[in-house]
Design a binder for these strands. Structure first.
Lengths: 197, 197
DNA sequence: AACTGACCAAAATAACAATTCGGTCAGTTC
DNA sequence: GAACTGACCGAATTGTTATTTTGGTCAGTT
């Protein structure tokens, strides 16, 4: 197996990794198939034996990202712990993935500066996936009475919006917050609420 | 006075009203000074006796908008009532101002589609004003113990973000909410919080 | 059979011409 | 002579055409 790998290296993996790096570094538009082929040490045609076109290659990279985020959440969550604790743990770990965030950051910038439709679509796909994932994990704590009962999708959407408000977005309106501050404030605004108890 | 007005009509007011309508209808970029002059029934040069340039005219319109929003809030708030009630009342009134919102909506669209820097700057000015206004009105209920104590500016920022998340933004991710639903959900996510009490 | 890279059409970009628009000011009006 | 006007100007935008780049193919090599 190791010998076979050396003889016939996994072209698909090479392509994916080169593409992943390129999309994160230059965005969707500025990443060319020639460039990816060269970075992967592969002929351009080879890419097209695995992916029908640039769009599908991009979608595969996004799927990987989503899969990775999900895996992180999955392995962090301890179902015997309270919902809020798990949420904070996952957030903390996700916040640490600065380099994995690079793609998201780059795509956001590309949408802002260039308005590339594919980048926009990609971000929306990721957003929807995250919302769907969170929503799916809200029913349990709601049933257990750990958090208020409400529409899971809307709740997940609001949670993501609050998270983004505290991190990437509107960094020009308030000072960038440290990871710890993000955590504390997220707990405060999302879980606790403004009302006194 | 009334006779004088008829003889020498208030050119400045004419200009402002024409410009206000034009900016709301066509946005910043697509509003031309020739057009404003014609709509105001005024020579183009006259505009420049009141406003140094297009930018200053635009800023005056925005100041008016902010002044109006503030007035609405001022006359709605009853300091003997609980903070949350006042907040809901003001929100309800502001939500009703569909036509006054036209400028904001148009500018948001312009930023999204054209990326006009001046429109972006204008919206940020309005945002900052609203945040500053809310922040200034948070200290009292915090001191009274009506709401949790926290950084007023960050709190105001989060409140605005939640409001926008429920109204204009992300209407492609969830169905547009009715005014009533916006109110209920805003109360839920911003005031109450997800934690059970 | 797996892989390559020269090749092609379409799309993006650059270069240039034509038009529009913010801003000025000489001249008109009252 | 103060208030006002609109023809006029250069800068910026838009429309047009020439040039280059890039996604995707496929005959040929390994």
């Amino acid at each position: 197996m190791t010998l076979m790998e050396r003889r016939t290296p996994d072209r698909r993996k090479q392509v994916i990794e080169a593409a992943s790096r390129s999309f994160a570094a230059f965005g969707y538009k500025a990443t060319t198939m020639d460039q990816v082929a060269k970075a992967a040490g592969v002929g351009k045609g080879t890419i097209y034996t695995f992916f029908a076109n640039k769009e599908e290659l991009f979608e595969e990279i996004l799927k990987d990202l989503i899969r990775e985020l999900r895996a992180v959440a999955e392995e962090t969550v301890d179902h015997s712990l309270p919902f809020a604790d798990n949420l904070m743990q996952v957030l903390q770990r996700v916040l640490g993935y600065r380099d994995r965030h690079a793609l998201i950051v780059k795509l956001s910038q590309e949408v802002r500066d260039l308005g590339t439709p594919m980048a926009k679509e990609g971000l929306e796909t990721v957003e929807r996936s995250i919302i769907a994932y969170i929503a799916g994990h809200l029913r349990e704590p709601m049933d257990k009475g750990e958090i208020q009962r409400a529409d899971p999708t809307l709740t997940a959407y609001m949670m993501l919006k609050m998270y983004l408000a505290l991190t990437s977005e509107g960094s020009h309106l308030h000072e960038p917050l440290s990871a710890e501050e993000v955590l504390t404030n997220f707990r405060f605004y999302c879980i606790e609420g403004l009302a006194v108890r």
